[in-house]
Design a protein around this nucleic acid. Structure first.
Lengths: 381, 381
DNA sequence: CTGAAAGCGCTTACAG
DNA sequence: CTGAAAGCGCTTACAG
């Protein structure tokens, strides 16, 4: 390979001047510069080696992106795709590249030849350790995921999106708990009390099905935990026993997994409403209800969370969170942080979008609760 | 920042030994090694600096991905998302990160402070120039895009997906032309002769609308050019004048752009069939036809290209290409190439998927062509 | 405006 | 098994 030194020799100048020709045009005469650049071109020199430059200059022009699960998850979950779109828009503007770092679905790092027998307690995440970047964007990782400590240890700027919340580390997210509360309150106000919950994942252990109270309490996924806590608070407020509300965990983020979970929930329980912690789950539930021949919202109401583009089309009542904007804000934050600015915490607003997937609890369900006197009342009005 | 040297001094060993402790466990005693690693941990040393390592060792563990248009396009076009999913799956297995490189929608590089006044003829694409990677995956770039020559000049392994085809550079793709021919033949066999064509983009110049013969001939997008050539060949074979077939260019890859193009085409021409070079365009056409109140396939048939997941649900007749697999193959190819193996050309199979969006040309349309004698024949049978 | 020197943090033969 | 030396390719003060 031809190096800067080769160019310097061929052009009869010092390496400094070649470097300056590329990076500091005003540090040498226009003549000198174009001569050097010409020599470089004839030699087939493709410009300063970026690895070497960054070693000396300290900056790479690349941002590391840490996502839960497999890398391909980035292109599978619709909400994540939207978030990434926002991140990509800002990265593009700032002219930095985006390094998607391989992660794993569970909390143990992949086996690598080189690091096979490092002490486990080092909390080293190989992909993070090895990546040549200016900073890390950490998106929705479960509590205690080694990639987080690994990134923090690198001493590079980090911005966390959604979770985990860590004291002193810049954060971009929403108030999941109160947003979820509003979703639950919406159903409660409509008179629903036979409600079931669909959640994507409480822990990255591949487990699925009805979740025990203990599993819910010890959820490692902060977002899921917060949304469930929001539901719970609303139930308690309304005098409903939260422990009587069935929760089914899908075990993943795909529609297929969501549908299986929705089937489990809807086949085993006679519900008038479903609260889903994501729109993927809510849309899955709508699909299952259609197959079951249940009418929405007459027989069953469904509420989601996210507001994906397809949710509006499906008439899904849901909590809107600004996914693209969240991505943009996070990218701006990490870029500023890399530039040396101090960045704090950004909490974005959410909004309840009431559409056609929710309606009043069916009358016979209301009757169950109301008793004879109210039935009479109904007829009078 | 604490460096390897600091660790070496604190542990009372040489830097070589610290390096070996991380990378070549069998090159030092277990005792020595764990002692070094412990010292490193107490000092808060986060492991060898990856940039510096790569400078010396030559490998980075990262692949550069070059895509047309804005970075966020990667998360907008459904076909691209599928391709990336395949690439990501393999990258994950190989434990390499994926660097999405910022590109631009037109052929001029974004202005960067440092490189502002480099001679234009150098064909330097800053993002490519600056990225610290082991090789490049080049996806569907228009002819003459400077990022391609820039990547090739870097002297790193490259694999090209779809386009541009370049002599001697490893390639993964499909036979777009013959696949497109089959799509057109399908319509011709059904008796259609009033056919219109929808294409996403012929050149990255933002232009849209009916495309002139000359613009089609000089298309810079090889994939679009090949598919149109395939259609054309089928028309000629069937005795249809290709120059009489209207072609509308959407100017982009989004559904909104597709719908606008489909409207232009369907409002201005009385067609019995639409050939779309992508499923996004075909699905857009279906949407527009629904709005226009035209029945598919009774009044108008539609054929796409790609076979997206949503296409099966929509009953779209289309050409299936293995998008995820294409991504996988390409990722495998670049990884092998980085490892020093020689990789060649991979052409993946395609398959015509006939569904409910195509049917026989409407009878009155057939009559037009057939004339009186055939009409009589019709009644007799 | 130009160059010699030092050094970014690490890895790699090589000698012991 | 361990260390001293050289060097990966470049950029950065600094001196002229």
């Amino acid at each position: 390979m031809v190096t800067m030194k080769d160019v310097a020799v061929a052009a009869g100048v010092s390496a400094s001047s070649v470097s300056n020709a590329y990076h500091r045009p005003n540090k040498l005469s226009a003549d000198q510069r174009s001569r050097i650049l010409n020599v470089a071109q004839t030699l087939g020199y493709s410009g300063p080696h970026p690895g070497a430059s960054s070693l000396r200059s300290g900056s790479v022009g690349s941002l590391g992106l840490l996502i839960t699960d497999s890398l391909s998850y980035a292109f599978e979950d619709p909400a994540t795709v939207l978030l990434l779109r926002g991140i990509a828009q800002v990265s593009q503007m700032a002219n930095v590249s985006l390094a998607l770092l391989p992660s794993g679905s569970n909390a143990s790092p992949p086996q690598t030849k080189n690091r096979r027998d490092l002490p486990v307690d080092e909390d080293v995440w190989p992909a993070v350790q090895r990546s040549v970047v200016d900073g890390f964007l950490i998106y929705s990782l479960p509590d205690g995921h080694p990639a987080v400590s690994s990134a923090l240890n690198r001493g590079l700027p980090c911005v966390i999106i959604d979770s985990p919340k860590i004291e002193g580390v810049p954060f971009v997210g929403i108030d999941d708990r109160s947003a979820a509360s509003r979703a639950a309150e919406h159903l409660l106000e409509l008179g629903h009390h036979r409600i079931g919950i669909l959640v994507d994942r409480l822990r990255p252990d591949g487990s699925r099905g009805f979740a025990s109270q203990s599993r819910v309490r010890h959820a490692q996924d902060e977002v899921a935990r917060e949304r469930l806590a929001g539901y719970r608070a609303a139930f308690q407020q309304a005098g409903l026993d939260p422990s009587a509300v069935p929760i089914v965990e899908a075990g993943g983020f795909l529609f297929t997994e969501g549908q299986r979970a929705a089937e489990d929930l809807l086949r085993r329980h006679n519900l008038t409403a479903v609260l889903a912690t994501t729109d993927v789950l809510a849309l899955s539930a709508l699909k299952v209800l259609r197959v079951m021949g249940k009418s929405v919202p007459e027989e069953v109401s469904v509420v989601g969370f996210d507001d994906l583009p397809e949710s509006a089309a499906a008439g899904l009542t849901t909590v809107r969170q600004p996914l693209i904007d969240k991505g943009r804000r996070a990218a701006e934050a990490i870029i500023r942080s890399v530039a040396g600015e101090t960045v704090g915490m950004t909490i974005l607003p959410t909004k309840m979008e009431v559409r056609s997937s929710t309606g009043p609890a069916p009358i016979n369900a209301a009757l169950e609760l109301a008793g004879p006197r109210h039935i009479a009342g109904l007829h009078e009005s």
